[in-house]
């Protein structure tokens, strides 16, 4: 995963609350290998008629190539499917700005370089009324659209991870000795925590 610290792009607004992960990507598309790309499945049933044609009135279906999504509260609630994040990333999104996020969605997003930026009600309204080019600065924690600038909330550890593009497995391998020591200690203090042998 590549790190990033600033992003310039176009904002698109999806002013609906509770966009759950079943809407972000319906379950029937989740058996596809990632290498085939998930972008076309993003919000599939909201964007497309049953015959697959795009709904011209749906905001995401315009000509612009948006990379920042301004969405309603409780974005990404529901299932743990990381495919919801794949669909956004493969469709070209770098960030989702919302009043709140599902907990599992947020971790999945950061693990794929997608920023889940939390903003206040007032700032959300300011952003949705603003026009012009958009820019996100991870170091400063700011979102700018035209002349409007607001701050977003994000755990510090996630900010660092997005900027560095760190891979957790590589980081954890540095602690192999500590993990081994913990395992030995747990095996001694709680041997019952290992599954009993079953014939």
């Amino acid at each position: 995963m590549a790190g990033w610290s600033t992003h310039k792009g176009t904002v698109i607004t999806l002013p609906l609350a509770n966009i759950d992960t079943d809407q972000l990507i319906p379950a029937r598309f989740m058996s596809v290998p990632r290498s085939e790309g998930y972008g076309n499945y993003l919000l599939h049933d909201l964007r497309r008629a049953p015959d697959g044609t795009l709904d011209p009135d749906f905001s995401l279906n315009g000509n612009a190539k948006p990379s920042i999504l301004l969405a309603g509260a409780n974005f990404g609630s529901g299932s743990s499917r990381e495919a919801a994040v794949y669909a956004l990333v493969d469709a070209g999104f770098h960030a989702v700005i919302a009043l709140s996020f599902g907990d599992i969605f947020s971790s999945n997003a950061v693990n794929n370089g997608l920023l889940p930026a939390r903003v206040s009600d007032a700032d959300w309204n300011a952003l949705s009324g603003a026009t012009g080019d958009a820019q996100i600065n991870l170091e400063q924690g700011t979102i700018t659209i035209g002349t409007t600038q607001v701050s977003f909330a994000l755990e510090d550890s996630w900010r660092v991870k997005l900027i560095n593009g760190w891979d957790d497995i590589d980081l954890t391998k540095q602690h192999t000795a500590q993990i081994a020591a913990y395992k030995t200690q747990r095996h001694q203090s709680a041997p019952w925590a290992w599954p009993a042998h079953v014939d």
Partner: peptide, 12 residues
Amino acid sequence: IGATEVAHVLAT
């Protein structure tokens, strides 16, 4: 947990 986290648990 999500798929990246599942991979992490598998590996570590």
